[in-house]
Simulated assay, not measured.
Amino acid sequence: MKIGKKEKSGQLYKAILQLRDEEECYEFFQDLCTVAELRSMEQRFEVASLLDDGMIYNDILERTGASSATISRVNR
C-alpha cells in the first residue's frame, strides 16, 4: 500500500529534505519517533540494502532478525 500524496505528508518529506547533516537528521528523528519506531526503520533499511545486494530471504532473516513478512514487505 502506497501513501497517497497529502499536504501533511508532503510537509514531512520536505522537512526531511531540509536536514543538513547526520546530527540534525538524528535529532529530527529522535524527536519524531519512538525508539521502537527508529529500530524498526533501521532494520527495514538494512533489509532493503541486503535485498539490493542480492541476499536471499533466509540469510537476511538470520542476519537482521527481521520476520519473513517484513522482508517481503520491504522487497515490494
Results as ranks from 00 to 15, higher is better:
24 E>V: 02
34 T>K: 07
22 E>Q: 05
16 I>V: 15
76 R>T: 14
26 Y>V: 06
45 F>M: 15
36 A>N: 09
59 D>Q: 09
30 Q>S: 10
24 E>L: 06
46 E>L: 13
48 A>Q: 09
50 L>C: 07
57 Y>I: 05
13 Y>G: 12
60 I>P: 03
25 C>G: 10
19 L>M: 15
74 V>P: 07
73 R>W: 13
14 K>N: 10
24 E>Q: 12
34 T>E: 06
62 E>N: 10
76 R>L: 09
42 E>G: 05
62 E>S: 14
56 I>Y: 11
51 L>I: 15
9 S>Y: 11
20 R>E: 10
15 A>Q: 08
10 G>D: 15
32 L>E: 05
11 Q>P: 10
43 Q>E: 12
74 V>K: 06
44 R>Q: 07
30 Q>C: 09
16 I>D: 11
15 A>L: 14
68 S>T: 04
71 I>L: 04
66 A>W: 02
32 L>C: 00
19 L>A: 08
23 E>V: 01
6 K>H: 11
42 E>W: 04
31 D>G: 10
9 S>D: 03
46 E>C: 02
45 F>S: 09
60 I>A: 01
46 E>Q: 15
4 G>L: 13
64 T>K: 06
29 F>L: 09
67 S>L: 14
29 F>Y: 09
56 I>K: 13
43 Q>V: 07
33 C>F: 09
28 F>R: 10
36 A>R: 05
51 L>Q: 08
16 I>T: 08
52 D>E: 13
24 E>T: 13
47 V>Y: 03
30 Q>T: 12
22 E>G: 04
56 I>R: 15
33 C>G: 05
72 S>T: 05
16 I>Q: 03
31 D>Q: 07
44 R>V: 09
5 K>G: 14
14 K>I: 00
24 E>S: 14
12 L>P: 01
71 I>K: 13
42 E>C: 08
41 M>R: 07
28 F>L: 02
42 E>Q: 11
51 L>N: 04
